[in-house]
Structures are given as structure tokens and as C-alpha cells.
Amino acid sequence: MEKITTHTGTALPMRRSNVDTDQIIPAVYLKRVTKTGFEDALFAEWRDDPKFVLNQDDFRQATVLIAGTEFGTGSSREHAVWALKDYGFKAVIAPRYGDIFRGNSLKNGLLTVELPTEAVEWLWGAVEADPTLEITVDLVEREVRAQGRTWEFEFDDFARWRLMEGLDDVSLTLRDEDRIAAFESDRDAWRPRTLPV
């Protein structure tokens, strides 16, 4: 996986809370068996509306998405993360996320950080006033910077290290394969197995 340290880019303000993963990518687009090619499906139902923020020329180059609270709640579909990445987003800033979406984002190198509502509202205003405003999401320093202002964010140490090193979880876990095998040899015999009975 590519190493993630810091990202700087212009931003897209999405003034909406509870943007669930069904909105990020409707179910009808989940039929593909690949991990790419989902850019057209991103926010598909809202993109019919010419006033929708994704359709505004000012924000077409944006790589940072700034959203309201409870972003990515609902369905576990990792396609939501793939669609955001395929479209060109590298980072998301929101007050809070759905847990599964957040986990999925960090497995795919989409940098999702949490800032308080006040900071998000300030950023919305600043970006709407000046769409060329560049925002830096810095995983190393654990801070967001824009227009001379700085906000710190919390980020799990282990997840941060993984992203910065570009490590994949399966390889990391397999380093402990002997422990997995030991656990398995110690499991109760009555635990169910899926083999046909």
C-alpha cells in the first residue's frame, strides 16, 4: 500500500450531516466485482441536481472532502471508500464517522480525520469564500492547517503507523501465525464447524 504522511489540496464543502454510505454510493452500483471504476457512482443520486456541490466548477479539483457529522454511517460497503478515492478524494474531514466506513477508509489509504463541528463550520465558510484555499491534512503532526490556522486531531497510534509505513494488515497478522495456530489447537471441540452434516 502507498505510504501516507500528509496531503495538501483544495476542498469541497458538503454541508450535510448523516451522509450514509447509501448516499455515497447507491446499492445499484455495488454489482461490480472489481475494486476500481466507481467514480461515476459517487453520490450518484445527488449528481442529477446541477446545484449539488460536486457539480460546481469551483470545486471540481477538490481532493479534500469536508462533511457534516455522522459521515459514512450505515452499510459496510467498502465501495463507498473506493468511489471517493476513484473520484480523486485523498482526505475527508468531519466531526464523526460511521465506524465501519472509518475502518474501511484507513485500509485503503483514504485519510479520514475528525475535527470539532466548529472547525468544520469554519472550514466550510473559508472554502466557500475562497475555493482555491489549500488545506493540509498532516498525519505526521496530527493536524489540519488552513489559512494560517491549525487544528489538532486525534489519531490512533497503530493505524497512523500502518498508514505511514504503507503496511498491509494481512502480512502484519501473519507474523503471528504461530500464535493463531496455538489458539486454534486450544479451541473447544464443541465449537461449530460449517462442514456439511
Binding site: 475494486k35 474501511n104 485500509k107 485503503n108 494481512v170 497478522t173 493463531i180
Partner: peptide
């Protein structure tokens, strides 16, 4: 609990999941 596709792959390969 529900998991994403990367975690599905992880469980298929290791029968485990790292979880806080």
C-alpha cells in the same frame, strides 16, 4: 459485527481480525 471487504480478505486469510 459487520466488516468491510479488506477485513473479509483478512479473515479469509488468517481467521482473525485486529480490533481495538
Amino acid at each position: 459485527f459487520g466488516i468491510g471487504t479488506s477485513e473479509v480478505e483478512h479473515v479469509l486469510a488468517t481467521q482473525t481480525l485486529p480490533q481495538a
